[in-house]
Amino acid sequence: MNEFFIFFQTIIPELLQGTRVTLKIAGGALFIGFAVGLPTALIRVYGSPWLQLIVTGYINIFRGTPLLVQLFVVYYGLPDLGLTFSRLTAAYLTLGLNSSAYQAEYFRGAIQSVGEKQMVAARAIGMSRFKAIRYIILPQAFRLVMPSWSNEMISIIKYTAVVFLIAVPDLMGKAKMVSSRYFAPISTYIIVALIYLVIVGLATLILRYVGKRFETPGLESMETATR
């Protein structure tokens, strides 16, 4: 046991470096996913039929193919078309766009469950479509999306591990180096698993707190039921 702690102390600085990279990629991917996913969802719900078709195609491609394949296409495939990205950029881009497809679907579901009647009521007091979406639909959709968004966040944190395959020095990448340097795969990967677990746990707690903070009085039970 004592041996394990000494080993732990030896490798932890390097693993924490990797953890920083993992957190950056996860955060960046979730941000890109949000920034692309929300407009995509809005087009999916309110856009013209043609735009809806394009957007649906985009969503299906990213949800219908393995993340790892997407990563390799972006990093190894696109340079053939003259699009070369650094390892880190390829990681952000792939995970971000992948997440955007999922987030688009979650936001679409949330927007649709807010209901057409809220839109009608907003238009009836003279709001433009844009204002109705901004002030009436989205504030409610954000509350409804919390449970599934929280799942998406957990998934993305864990999926970042694939980026070690294009040699990004994330937590998984660092773990690979450390374990082969010390010939200690079991201890290393147990520590790595624990680090992922702690990150996911903390992130979930934060999101749950945010969700509680913005809960609409009187609607708590309904939201908990969906959670």
């Binding site: 009647k117 809220q118 009521a121 609607l219």
Partner: peptide, 10 residues
């Protein structure tokens, strides 16, 4: 004024 009120729930 709507039959089902359509108040802004949030």
């Amino acid at each position: 004024v709507f039959q089902e009120f359509n108040l802004f729930n949030h």
